[in-house]
Design a binder for these strands. Structure first.
Lengths: 152, 152
DNA sequence: CTACATGCAAACCCTTTGCAGGCTG
DNA sequence: CAGCCTGCAAAGGGTTTGCATGTAG
């Protein structure tokens, strides 16, 4: 348990170091935004990040959230999930490495273990002469909680 | 070859019959839109469908295309691909059954064979108590044509 | 005559951008 | 003082909606 917390903290520190190295500044808001994206296992949307940052920094604007998330995306530190056609969700870890399980009812998004699909994408791609760059897997279903709710 | 054409034609006929059964009318424009979505293997966007319909029906508006595609989506006859965060692509066949291979360079989208992943999604989902409803797989890479182009 | 179909324009949502002012190094 | 950071408001792109008109059954 403490290990996981430590891993995330290290990740945040690394990101901040890279940030600095690229000539960007580390501000309290940015710290908070990065924190939310990495700590939060819920793959938040920009709006959700925005609301959370505002708990601590009420003056924060959406533009700042968008801009910071844009930087992190360009740095390859977070990835964008195109789960639905409305707003994008963001994953603080590499989304190509693990599938996502989405509840069609409450929209909960949970991470599945890495490498469930092994070499399958590589083999599938080679047949078509493609060079593999990544793969995204989204599985849809109904979560246990929503199954319960639908019974009553 | 002729088989494939026949399969698609049957599919179009079935959709039209369902359309009628639901109380909707079959108009030349709608015929054309359904035709494009089913015949076209390129997973077109609304804009692309719009442009194509306009070849035959220059007065067609975007709204009509959106509304017709909306109906087909609700009927479960076509599926929406959230490949990128910009405009949606539409697949005339069940997208849960086959992965898509997308070229990061020219944005070509091709269908891979069905069932590449077998029972993997089912197993992954059961561990979390979910009821499986579907899964979407998108694999990204560089297609042979773009590999050639980048060499020169 | 009722109900659906169409085109237009406006509204909407999410995201990006430009700009003026503020702050950091 | 150069350059990044912020908030605001405006613009942008894709999609949806309301309404008046048209048309099929």
């Amino acid at each position: 348990m403490d290990d996981k917390v430590q891993v995330k903290q290290n990740r945040i520190d690394n990101i901040m170091t890279r940030f600095k190295g690229l000539g960007y500044r580390i501000t309290p808001q940015r710290m908070a935004i990065v924190d939310i994206l990495i700590q939060d296992a819920n793959h938040p949307t920009v709006e959700q990040v925005y609301q959370k940052v505002r708990n601590d920094f009420p003056m924060t604007s959406r533009a700042t959230v968008y801009k910071t998330i844009g930087l992190l995306k360009d740095m390859g530190e977070i990835s964008e999930l195109n789960i639905s056609n409305s707003s994008s969700h963001y994953d603080g870890f590499n989304s190509e490495k693990h599938p996502h399980l989405v509840c069609n009812c409450c929209n909960e998004i949970i991470d599945l273990a890495e490498d469930v699909f092994g070499q399958v994408p590589q083999e599938a791609v080679q047949q078509h002469g493609y060079i593999l760059q990544g793969h995204y897997v989204t599985i849809y279903g109904i979560c246990p909680k929503c199954q319960e709710l639908s019974k009553s």
